[in-house]
Design a protein around this nucleic acid. Structure first.
Length: 696
DNA sequence: CTAGGGTTAG
């Protein structure tokens, strides 16, 4: 008895698998058969011992056995023993080279074969085409094509597929298509090769259309067709097609193939249907790296870093060895979460598993430490990279910039130029950002004005936004406006947002209104615009306008993004919102805040109420301020972290003036370093002051 | 005795 799942129902029946499966199991599920190198070697040794001479037939078979067992040295050795290799001997050894990924050797053997006077046949040509495809040898591929036409009258399925594949891999889809069209009869493998070609060349639409044609015309497809076409479906983010293919593969009985299931999982993940992806992931019956990679990447990219990290642990419990790719994916997740402790552990794993020679993993490590607030660790990780690329340099310069270490960022930038690494547009955003956070107006202006001339990089939206922010903060509002007017393209939300921020700092109502108007058009769903404009009106005492903005906001159903803070303690990340009482140690947290409040008042602190659009009276407002999420997170850090350890908190919006002042007092009173990462940058509170110099 | 198409990927 066996239990088989076919289409949408389950039934129990004494059925052999082949009655149920429309398609045979894929190659990956077949047993290796007689491709046993050990057995081949034993037989070979036995024959030598017994003084048996190999006849041509046996020798060819032996070459083939070694080849299939991926023991290319053995195959070549036996081949060389053959006094007069025939076409089959050559074919077997050339195929072996290709199978062993020694395509260069395969093509050399082909050359030798030609010189020795043996003519290649279909078998030879199909192996040779595969080698050409792998090496992306266009010209040789074309020569093989003409050789094929000259020598062979009938077309051959294998050789034709070889041609389609070769032209596809050489990005010559028109020729691939011609090779396909000239086939008198096309089998499923030819279809698959063509679909795969379009997919590899980025013509995803054509790939999906071909599959749809196959399906509508009732042409047989198989597991390979499905996994190939899904790759294109994923690139197109075509969720409907993905769902259709999902049901097609269940109905046709091929939803049992590793490739099909992994492809579906990956496609759902890429289309941001995490729930469906995770369902497939949970229901799968085997463990493998690809499924974990797809799932972890999906979680990391859609912000659920905690789930990504959980899976990483689960993966190790399942005895799957992670690779450098997963490692860098997870480090990026830690960077997003500001999960410093988890990040450090991953660093240890990366060393243990030998991933530190991978440039992506080491770049991610620099980024992770910088984003987790430890610029010193980032620095160390950066200097340990032997072959720094542009991404490594940009990550480190960007890290310094976010921490407000403008001078170091610029020094590193100069060092990068000295060692001859040309900057890209991202590096220059970081450079301007460094000037911005360190208040280096003149330097910023110079880099901005000369970036095109010196580095051939035209300023984009981001560069303008950074520069306008810099000018605006330092009070050069007229210059900022002039710059906005000089932009040779339509400015986007980040540019106008920078101008609005500048208008708020310098209480410029007219400019604020203009920028806000632009932003309402460009980013109608963003709450920040309303809040900032209302703040500008409020600071000028224009209460009627404040009320108007509040009404607009209410009517348009735009909600203010709720402030949240995160703190990581041991292996857990704790989340806080304003007035949060959901934590098991809530009482202790509030007691700690009360205790701090007393100490702080004695030291001269009084709450700083930033007027905003909320209809709350002053004492309530103070209470709310007092329980802002970052204060709760810091208080929790103080009771739960070991004495003296720095406290790292991440926040999703800009830190308010009161919390900023509060933390300057706290760090002094408790003699602890407090590091807060807000939406824009890092604040290092130490000895009563902040690294941002109250300029943020 | 010898040959063709597939999943993760910064």
């Amino acid at each position: 008895m066996c239990c088989c799942k076919v289409a949408n129902f389950r039934y129990e029946t004494p059925c052999p698998l082949d009655q149920v499966w429309v398609f045979p199991p894929s190659r990956s599920q077949k047993l290796p058969g007689l491709q046993d190198g050990g057995l081949g070697r034993t037989l070979h040794g036995l024959m030598l011992k017994m003084g048996l001479d190999l006849d041509q037939f046996s020798a060819n078979a032996l070459v083939d056995t070694y080849s299939k067992a991926r023991e290319i040295e053995g195959a070549v050795a036996v081949f060389q023993e053959i006094a007069h290799p025939d076409v089959v001997s050559w074919n077997a050894v050339i195929a072996g080279c290709v199978l062993h990924d020694r395509n260069d050797l395969a093509l050399m053997m082909l050359d030798e074969m030609n010189s020795s006077g043996t003519s290649p046949n279909m078998f030879t040509l199909s192996s040779a085409l595969k080698a050409c495809a792998a090496m992306r040898f266009k010209e040789l591929g074309k020569q093989l094509h003409s050789c094929l036409i000259k020598r062979v009258a009938d077309s051959d399925l294998y050789a034709s597929v070889g041609l389609i594949d070769m032209y596809s891999k050489c990005e010559m889809m028109d020729d691939a298509r011609r090779a396909y069209d000239s086939m008198p009869k096309k089998d499923v493998i030819a279809w698959n090769a063509l679909i795969s070609g379009y997919s590899q060349c980025g013509d995803d639409f054509e790939a999906v259309s071909l599959f749809s044609k196959m399906y509508n015309e009732d042409i047989d497809f198989n597991q390979t067709t499905i996994s190939t076409v899904l790759k294109s479906v994923a690139s197109l983010l075509a969720i409907k097609v993905c769902k259709q293919i999902h049901s097609i593969s269940i109905k046709s009985g091929i939803y049992s193939d590793f490739y099909v299931i992994n492809s579906l999982l990956d496609t759902y993940g890429k289309c941001n249907h995490i729930d469906e992806a995770s369902k497939i992931f949970e229901e799968r019956t085997w463990e493998d790296l690809v499924a974990y990679t797809s799932m972890i990447t999906a979680y990391s990219q859609y912000g659920d870093g905690e789930e990504a990290l959980k899976l990483y642990l689960q993966m190790q419990d399942a005895d799957i060895k992670p690779d450098a790719f997963i490692c860098s994916s997870l480090l990026n997740a830690c960077a997003k979460l500001s999960a410093y402790e988890q990040g450090k552990q991953l660093h240890v794993h990366a060393i243990k598993f030998g991933f530190m020679c991978d440039i992506f993993a080491s770049n991610s490590l620099v980024n992770m430490y910088a984003k987790c607030g430890s610029i010193d660790d980032a620095d160390r990780a950066f200097f340990e990279i032997p072959n720094r690329g542009i991404v490594s340099w940009s990550a480190m310069i960007g890290g310094y910039a976010q921490h407000g270490h403008g001078k170091q960022a610029l020094q590193l930038f100069n060092q990068m130029l000295r060692v001859g690494v040309p900057p890209n547009h991202i590096t220059l955003v970081s450079v301007l950002c460094a000037c911005n956070h360190a208040g280096l107006v003149n330097e910023g202006r110079q880099y901005f004005e000369k970036m095109e001339e010196m580095f051939g990089i035209k300023p984009t939206q981001e560069h303008y936004a950074c520069m306008i922010d810099l000018l605006g903060r330092s009070g050069k509002l007229n210059e900022a406006v002039e710059l906005v007017n000089s932009i040779p393209f339509e400015a986007n939300g980040s540019v106008w947002g920078a101008l609005l921020g500048a208008a708020r700092i310098h209480k410029n109502i007219e400019l604020g209104q203009k920028a806000a108007e632009m932003l309402y058009d460009l980013e109608p769903d963003k709450s920040g615009t309303h809040v900032l404009l209302a703040n500008i009106y409020a600071s000028a005492g224009m209460w009627e306008n404040v009320a108007k903005v509040r009404k607009v906001m209410k009517d348009s159903k735009v909600k203010k993004e709720p402030g949240m803070s995160w703190i990581e303690i041991k292996d857990k990340v704790y989340t806080f919102i304003v007035g949060d009482r959901s934590h098991s140690r809530s009482d202790e947290i509030y007691a700690k805040l009360d205790q701090l409040g007393d100490l702080l008042s004695k030291a001269g602190y009084s709450p700083v109420v930033e007027i905003d659009i909320h209809n709350v009276n002053r004492s309530e407002k103070e209470k709310l301020l007092y329980h802002h999420s970052e204060k709760l997170a810091v208080a929790f850090g103080l009771i739960a972290m070991p004495p003296g350890a720095p406290i790292r908190v991440k926040k999703n919006i800009r830190i308010c003036v009161d919390c900023h002042t509060f933390l300057k007092f706290v760090c002094k009173i408790v003699s602890r370093e407090i590091i807060v990462r807000d939406i824009n940058r890092f604040h290092h509170f130490k000895d009563g002051s902040c690294s941002c110099g109250d300029y943020w």
